[in-house]
Amino acid sequence: MVSKSDVGVILMNLGSPDSTAVPDVKRYLNEFLMDKRVIDYPWLFRKILIEGIIVPKRAAQSAKAYSSIWWEEGSPLVVLTKQLQKAVQHDLNLPVEIAMRYGNPHPEVAFDNLLRQNPDLKEVILFPLYPHYAMSSYETAAEYAKEIHRKKNYAFKLTLIPVFYNEPDYIHAMAESMRPYLQQEYDHVLFSYHGLPERHMRKADVTGKHCMQVDDCCHVNSTAHTYCYRHQVTVTSELVAAALGLPREKWGISFQSRLGREEWVKPYTVDVLERLPKEGKKKLLIVCPAFVSDCLETLEEIAVEGKHLFLNSGGESFTMIPCLNIHPLWVQAVVKYCNQLIEQ
């Protein structure tokens, strides 16, 4: 059994451009979109599409969006992940580093920093900060870190924290972070998750015959659920809603951040935001449980663009509930998950 004194922890998040300057944003978008698990087209076609069409069109627009939410200390996602690192390290009493799947700090830097702190390091616990499994989120982070670990031939063992979409401590942290906002008057609570192409859903189905093929597939038991993003976000929403005592008619699920023209998992958040006021649901609370740290997709896409769309569609009030960030119950959950692995 490895002694706790010979263990280090890495919290791994999505990433962010180094700055809001267009060249930095362009570099970040290229790295992100060229990931074969994000856009899983053949390499040459992906390169032409991304470097020749998507990034040149989106870089300046994305830089402007990042500028609108950038903090004095830097990228909100990076700043918040560093704050989580500090809080977890304090409670865990172990060296904790952060790494990003795209951009900086790179996982190799995190590995090397842990080794500098403890040359006798025996094990590193990698915590991908993604509650739900998708090849474009949890899988790509985990596989990227494992690839670097293998290529650099590090002597220490690399152990991964699994997805935690239904873990009681995560659900409790989500529910309690939302509870104060339920004290205000509201008509509807919307759980908005990052979207995925339907093609990714079918590709992740290990049975090849369940996801999006069986009626009410998310509620029919299947081994496909181990890697099924839609099933897992459905479970998260149901568990949080139950913990909060939300009646079924008072909450719903939607999917944001669609890219391209192909079919993505529905319903789309933009369509729901337009529709809800027409149904008389004009006071909205919205939360994004797929993100544990506030970022461009929450602070700009939802809190700014989503709010504008909802209010212009007839809505009266729009409140975005912050991500878990450094909520004390979330910090406790992260520490507990790490300790559970160390004690195994």
Rank of each mutant, 00 (worst) to 15 (best):
A204P: 01
A243V: 09
S222W: 11
V272Q: 02
V220G: 01
Q256T: 05
K266R: 07
I253Q: 00
V233D: 01
K266G: 03
S222M: 10
R248Y: 11
G245F: 13
A242N: 14
Q213H: 11
V233M: 06
Q256G: 04
R230M: 05
A241G: 10
P247W: 14
I253R: 02
G252Q: 03
L239S: 11
R261A: 13
C218P: 01
Q256M: 08
D215L: 10
D215R: 06
Q232P: 09
V214R: 01
E263K: 15
C211N: 11
V272W: 01
V233W: 03
I253L: 04
C217S: 04
L246E: 11
D205L: 12
V206E: 14
E249F: 05
G252H: 05
H231R: 12
W251V: 04
D205A: 10
V235H: 09
V240P: 07
V265G: 00
L259K: 08
R261N: 11
V240A: 12
V240Y: 12
I253C: 00
F255N: 03
V265D: 00
V265L: 10
A242E: 15
V206A: 12
H210V: 07
V235W: 10
M212S: 03
V272C: 02
N221S: 13
A224K: 07
G252E: 04
V270W: 06
D271A: 06
L246T: 14
V233E: 02
A241H: 10
I253N: 00
C218R: 04
V240K: 10
R261S: 10
V272D: 00
D215T: 13
T223W: 07
A241T: 12
Y268I: 04
D205N: 11
F255D: 01
Y268T: 01
L244G: 07
P247Q: 13
A242S: 15
T269C: 01
A243P: 06
A241K: 07
T236V: 13
H225D: 08
C217A: 05
V233K: 02
D271I: 03
E262G: 03
A224G: 09
C228M: 13
D271T: 02
L259V: 15
V206Y: 08
R248V: 12
W264P: 00
W264M: 03
P267V: 02
H225A: 08
A241W: 09
G208V: 10
E238H: 08
R258T: 05
T226N: 15
S237L: 08
R258C: 02
V233P: 00
D216F: 02
I253G: 00
E262L: 07
G208H: 07
M212H: 03
L239N: 13
T234L: 09
C211P: 02
H231S: 05
S237G: 15
A243G: 11
Y268H: 05
V265Y: 03
T269W: 04
A241I: 11
H210M: 06
L259A: 11
L239F: 14
D271L: 05
E238F: 02
F255Y: 15
A204C: 07
R261L: 09
L244R: 09
K250N: 14
D205P: 07
E263C: 05
D215W: 04
V220P: 01
